[in-house]
Amino acid sequence: MTRALFNRDTAISVGFFLLLGLAWEYGVRWSGVQAYLLPPPSAILAELWRSRGPILAQSLVTMTEVFWGFIIAVVLGVPIAALIYFSRTAKRTVYPLFVALQSIPKIGLAPLIVVWFGYGLTSKLIMAFLFAFFPIIISTLGGLASTPAHLEEHFRALRATPLQTFWRLRLPAALPSFLDGCKVAMPLAVIGAVVGEFVGSKDGLGNLILTASGSGHTTLTFAALFAVTVLSLLLFYGVAYWERFIWWRAA
């Protein structure tokens, strides 16, 4: 792992982003764009350092919302997907219901949810949940359906019970697809939480972005945006980490 940090691919990535940063920095300086419109990266980095206290605190708030919203999406999404997969009735009732719900623009729901659940954690958690829920259901469904037919037949020949077939075959076979769904759902959950914070909140990174830009503090806005991106990346790789437990997928 330590060696991988210094390999050619990493060097190319780092070089690319350094170049991008430099272009931004000098582009802003030479073109004379005002800092309140587009601050140079050096100013944003300085702002990140100066406001590290509040930014960290607000990041923690947003992360908590995203984390619980995502967990609830998984805890509810997987059994619901299993229900849709196994029950013809659920496939004709629950499934179209969720597809219809998914088609409602969730941003439009945000004000309602704030009205219903207040300015605190709950409404943001629900927003994160709403954004993450659908990809998790769809990917779990796809995973369950992708169980190879010859393995199902094999389990029948071994006289496995339906429950055994579920736990020992369908569920593990669904894991790769499920994890892909989680990787899509996690950044969406971050967007959901930030949208919730935009619409009505006392704190969180979305709130920070809103107040900073409202008071013309563009550099802090960028710093907060940067923090959202880093948070999203961290959470994404936190999910991707679990891929090592489905090592067989590559084979």
Binding site: H150, L151, E153, H154, F155, A157, L158, R159, A160, Q164, R168, L169, P172, I246, W248, A251
Partner: peptide, 29 residues
């Protein structure tokens, strides 16, 4: 249970090691 089947395509579970694959039939029954 009187019959054991070896299929034309090998039917190992990719997430089980050799030992657990060998014992799969026994563990399921």
């Amino acid at each position: 249970a009187a019959m054991g089947f070896v299929f034309q395509t090998s039917n190992l579970l990719p997430w089980l090691n050799v030992r657990d694959n060998l014992l799969l039939g026994i563990n399921l029954d």
